[in-house]
Write a protein that binds this DNA or RNA. Structure first.
Lengths: 133, 133
DNA sequence: CTCTTATTGACAAAGATTCTCAATAAGACA
DNA sequence: TGTCTTATTGAGAATCTTTGTCAATAAGAG
């Protein structure tokens, strides 16, 4: 039997593994550019485009969270696959995962009340962590 | 008495008024590029840089909300100056303002509990509105 | 009306992200 | 294991958004 109709088969490559690993090592959110620099510093010859492609795949697969920074760049972070939100330090980027069952319900409810279907939401809390004061 | 020390005096110009007005006319979130197109279509000779500058000013003054789209561009929308959040249609961009006193408290509390000061947050709900189904 | 200087518009410049395409190598199968 | 198909890669070009530069303009004060 052939593939459904359009999605091509994925392949495992050392480059993907390297990006995944580097993302896991990072303490907070990092940009594709930063990740590329880090990888090259460690001797990798990976291409920038590959980093972008891999991060986009990871985000789509739910293995990474993405976030838009103030400078119009996208930041990524490895995460658990379960739904959660973030508490992020504005200075050092330290990130904590937050769970909020009530919020999920509230958000879906607000959407439904106003006739919106397929609800989703973005919730991020920012602040300055204890260590940065 | 002279101005405090650094902030220069603001001046009222037809260009700023035009951007403000165009932003008010828009139904949902729009990008600086879109707004510039719209203005030119209506005969204005306003420059793109001026649109960017004016929108940034409005956002800082709390007269407009900004939002990062998926395509790494910033979207703006005229809004009330009081704090609020948005319920946005993924298809047509229709936007409703949402108030949630409890949320504000919750967000600040979560930040404080984890030792974060100067809390702020981004909360947006997305969905598909009744008209788009 | 005059004078100071904030603002403007056209263009260049900076960044981030995506696209293109020939070369490479993962995975399937004999 | 060797061969074959084609997903993936890397380098650079191309695109797009946003910011900076700077001479010319015009808002607001006196």
């Amino acid at each position: 039997m052939t593939q459904a109709n359009s999605a091509p088969a994925k392949r495992n490559t050392p480059q993907k593994a390297a990006v995944k690993h580097a993302l896991g090592e990072a303490t907070g959110f990092v940009s594709a550019q930063q990740l590329h620099q880090t990888l090259k510093k460690h001797g990798s010859t990976i291409g920038l485009a590959t980093v972008y492609r891999t991060l986009a795949d990871l985000a789509q697969a739910g293995e990474a969270d993405s976030l838009q920074s103030k400078d119009a760049e996208v930041l990524y972070r490895a995460c658990t696959t379960s739904h959660h939100h973030h508490l992020i330090c504005r200075k050092c980027g330290l990130t904590l995962e937050i769970e909020a069952q009530n919020l999920e319900k509230w958000a879906d409810q607000v959407a439904t009340e106003h006739g919106f279907s397929q609800p989703s939401h973005n919730i991020d809390i920012f602040g300055v962590c204890a260590g940065c004061r």
